[in-house]
Amino acid sequence: MGIASVALWLPSGRDVAADAVAEGRLEARVARDLGHRQLPVAEDVSAPDMAVRAASEALRRSDAVAGDLALLCHSWMYYQGHDLWSPPHYIADQLGAHAALPVGVRQICNGGAAALELAVARMSLETGVRHALVTTADRFVPPGFDRWRSDYGAAYGDAGTAVLLRQPAAASDLLLLRSLHSAAAPQLEGMHRGTDPFARLPRDASPVVDMRRTKRLYLKDHGTDVFHKINRDMIRHVLRRALRDAGVRPDDPRIRLAVLPRLGAKVLGTAWTPVLGELLPAPAADWGTDTGHLGTGDLAAGLHDLLRREALRPGEVAVLLNAGAGFTWTCAVVEAARR
C-alpha cells in the first residue's frame, strides 16, 4: 500500500500557554506537565472545511485528482457544525469526489487511525479501489470545550489532516505502509462516562466537556494501577504485532524512530517512552510541542512531519503510535520508498 501524499492544515491563530497561565485559564503546574508551548486555534474555519483544505493540499501534491477517489473516510471527535448531518459527504462534495463512497469514523482520539485501517481493509478487499483518502478535523471551541482544561494529560489544538492511499503503490509514492495493527480494551470505556446516567442531549450532564471529571469518578472506584498496566501492555502488543506483520524485528537497524501521539510531556515520559525504550533501540519523537493533541489527527500529522522533516532515508522505517478513549491503541509501520 502506497502513501501517495499527506497534508496537515493548521490555522493561523495560536493560544500560547504562557498567556493562558497569565490569564488564569491554565495552572502553571499543568502547563509544565503538558509541555505544549502553544495550540493552533481556528477562529473562523469550520472543522469540515479544515479537512477540505488538507485534502485539497494532499491531492495537489500527488498525481491523483478528486475523481480518482473511490473511498473517503473522515474521522472526528468533536462537533462538526451541524446536527444529524454527514461531514464526509460534505468533504467529498467540496472536493468534487463524486465517485467516492464517503464514510464517517468515530473512535475518539484513535479515529484517524481507525479510518486509515478501514480504508486499507476496503482497498484490500474490493477490486478497483485504487485511491482512498482519509481525513480528520476537529475544532475545539468554547463554551462547550476547554482546550487546556477539558482533559488530563492533553491539550487540544485545531487542525485538518489528509492521507492519500494508493494500491498498488506507485514509484512516485513517498512512503509505503508496511503494516497497521489495532487492539482495544473496552473494559476501560467508563473512564469517559464516569457515573453519569445516559443523557437526553449533548452536554446535559455538564455545560463543558469535562473528561477530568469522568476520569476522577472512574479512577476513584477502580484505581490507577489497572489502567496503567493495560496501557503499557497494549502499547507493547500493538508495537510487536505491527512489526511482526511488517516483517521487521524490533532491533532492525532500519528502524529510525518511533513517533509518539501528541499528548502531554509528562504522560509521554511516564507511560509511553519507557515502554518503547524496552523494545526499540530507536529514539522516540514528540512533535506535538507547538500543536498539542490534534484530536483524531495525531497519526496523520506524524506522517506529515516524517516527510516534512525528511526524517527517513530510502529503505528506513518508522513506527507511529496512537491511542484513544474506549480504549483503542494502534501502531503503523511505514518505510521510506526506495528511489
Rank of each mutant, 00 (worst) to 15 (best):
I91K: 06
T135W: 15
L175C: 05
V41N: 03
V226Q: 11
R25W: 02
R53D: 01
F145L: 14
A92E: 01
W329R: 00
Y218D: 04
T328V: 10
D245S: 08
C73G: 03
G81H: 10
F145H: 12
D225N: 08
P314Y: 11
G247Q: 03
G295V: 03
P102D: 06
T296Y: 01
H74G: 04
G13E: 02
W148M: 14
Y152F: 15
A28D: 06
R37S: 12
H237S: 07
C331G: 05
R249S: 10
L280F: 09
A171E: 06
P314S: 07
R309H: 11
L39H: 05
V21G: 08
L95P: 01
L164W: 04
T224M: 12
L125M: 11
A332S: 09
P11Y: 13
R149W: 03
R240Q: 07
A58P: 00
P168G: 03
G295C: 10
S86P: 00
D298A: 06
V52W: 15
T224I: 10
V103N: 05
P314H: 11
R53C: 01
A154R: 12
D221F: 02
R29Y: 03
R254F: 08
T127K: 14
A184S: 15
L180R: 01
V41G: 01
R256I: 05
A70S: 14
R106T: 02
D290V: 02
R254V: 05
G194Y: 06
A18V: 14
V208M: 12
L268Q: 07
A169Y: 01
T195V: 12
T136S: 13
L69R: 12
F198M: 14
S75P: 09
R37M: 01
H222N: 13
V334G: 01
V120Y: 06
G269R: 12
V334H: 08
V65L: 10
A7L: 12
D83F: 15
E126D: 06
V226E: 09
R122P: 00
V41A: 10
L307H: 04
V120F: 11
G128H: 09
L39F: 02
A246D: 00
W148A: 14
W85V: 04
P250G: 10
T224E: 11
M123Y: 09
W76S: 12
E278H: 11
